[in-house]
Design a protein around this nucleic acid. Structure first.
Lengths: 112, 112
DNA sequence: CCGCATCCGATTGGATACTG
DNA sequence: CAGTATCCAATCGGATGCGG
């Protein structure tokens, strides 16, 4: 981390590192984000692109991301009901982090 | 992330993103890493700098990090026994990721 | 189509006491 | 000092069936 001033002696939800981690934590979360990085998507489209996720978990992830202000939801009129999930500007701010996760993972794999 | 070729349809332990995430996942893990980024440390020193971590969890974290090749352990001769934990080169490779986590967390906090 | 409600097994982390 | 051994509570994720 940048400086060691204000050292944390335990996990603190207000620490930026914890904030970022909690935003992307949980199984499937990064994959949901990746799909949304390709563009807005409906609930069903997300489920189709992630065939092994259960509706419960997909719902949980989308709720969490919405609660964190990373994803916006829009209900489309008509029948049957359609929904549109899209990354918010805050959600877009995660892109460099996901890229760095990928880079770091590659580096770690290469070392084996 | 970079490309969408070879899209993952479920969490795959071989995906670089998952590799990086699993390396830093778990409560206390990033704090243990941060302490080691300041330099090598003994078990007791780590416990003293993280007063609220239990010995069990500290042991678990250090074992995990060692299993991933991110941390090296050295036993120092003498009595009482002393140990020296230090970041390996692979562990050093995590530094940019932790920095990016911090930056991203700050950006997210600013948006509230 | 878009979820929510329920149940349940597995994993996780904390507290505590004890050993080489 | 540097861990290990237990036990336990809480969280998490998967499966499934129903409702708006």
């Amino acid at each position: 981390m940048p400086t060691e001033a204000g050292r944390t002696r335990r996990p603190d939800a207000d620490c930026p590192v914890e904030v970022a981690l909690s935003a992307i934590s949980g199984r499937w979360t990064t994959l949901v984000l990746r799909e949304l990085m390709h563009g807005p998507s409906s609930f069903g489209d997300l489920a189709a692109r992630l065939p092994e996720i259960s509706p419960k978990v997909l719902t949980e992830r989308l709720h969490g991301l919405r609660a964190d202000g990373l994803v916006d939801r829009e209900r489309l009129t008509g029948f049957p009901v359609r929904t549109r999930y899209a990354l918010s500007p805050a959600g877009e701010a995660l892109r460099p982090l996901l890229t760095e996760l990928y880079r770091t993972g590659e580096r770690l794999q290469r070392r084996r």
